[in-house]
Amino acid sequence: MAYVIALPCVDVTDRACVAECPMDCIYEGARSLYIHPGECMDCGGCEVVCPVGAVYYAEDLPSALQEYAPDNGRFFTEVLPGRDAPLGSPGGAAAVGPLNVDTPMIAALPPQSPPEQQRRREPRGGGSCCAGDRHD
């Protein structure tokens, strides 16, 4: 299982998680960010820095957000409107750059208001991302 970015990210896309990710596996869609499940090493660094609490370990998604796990995968495996082939596993988001597409589920959501007060959740396993490594 990998980490998943859920509803609180839609129309916010803070990108703190992108800067923290040692695997460069967080891709930018038009309205949301998506974590590549095959490229994610499950370090949890993205979860720790997300100011809106949008990142969850897939198994820990609240029931109201369960649909975001398969939808996150569809971003990489399906042909989406505005794209003529699945993205697949390009091996890093930086080389691909921002993609101006989203899954149909995200594209169909009404505009989301930015949260009034940004919050952070306790990370899964209490952890730091890379067993004590610092990312200064």
Rank of each mutant, 00 (worst) to 15 (best):
V79G: 06
Q118L: 13
G92E: 01
P70T: 05
Q112K: 14
P37H: 06
R74Y: 10
M1L: 11
D136A: 15
A93C: 05
V96H: 08
P110I: 09
E47C: 02
G88K: 02
P70W: 04
V101Y: 03
G132Y: 09
C50Y: 02
E20S: 14
T103V: 07
A54V: 04
S89I: 10
P111Q: 13
S113G: 12
I5K: 00
D60V: 04
D84S: 11
A107G: 08
P22I: 10
E116A: 15
D84M: 13
P123C: 09
R15H: 12
A131C: 15
A19C: 12
R124W: 10
N100H: 12
G97Y: 10
C130Y: 12
I26A: 02
E20A: 15
D42Q: 15
P123Q: 06
L87H: 05
P62Q: 06
E122L: 11
R31S: 08
E59W: 08
R15G: 09
A94W: 11
E59L: 12
V12M: 10
R120A: 09
A64C: 09
D84F: 13
Y3L: 00
S63L: 13
N100C: 12
E47H: 05
Y34N: 03
Q112R: 15
A95H: 08
V101H: 01
L61Y: 04
S128T: 13
H135E: 14
A69E: 08
G45W: 03
E116I: 10
P98G: 13
E39L: 14
T13E: 14
R15T: 15
L7F: 07
M41V: 15
P110A: 08
G97C: 08
I5N: 01
L7M: 10
Y27H: 07
P111E: 12
V10T: 05
D24C: 01
R31L: 09
G82I: 02
P81V: 01
A30D: 11
G82S: 07
V52H: 00
A16M: 14
F75N: 01
P110Y: 02
D14V: 14
Q66E: 11
Y3K: 00
D71A: 02
G126H: 10
V10C: 06
G53D: 00
H135V: 14
G53M: 00
P98K: 14
V12I: 12
G44D: 04
P51N: 09
P98F: 07
A16K: 13
P90N: 00
E20D: 13
L33I: 08
P110R: 09
T13H: 11
V79Y: 00
P62F: 03
R15C: 11
D71V: 03
D102C: 04
S63G: 10
R134P: 11
G126K: 03
N72K: 07
A64N: 11
S113M: 13
M41C: 14
Q118A: 12
C9H: 02
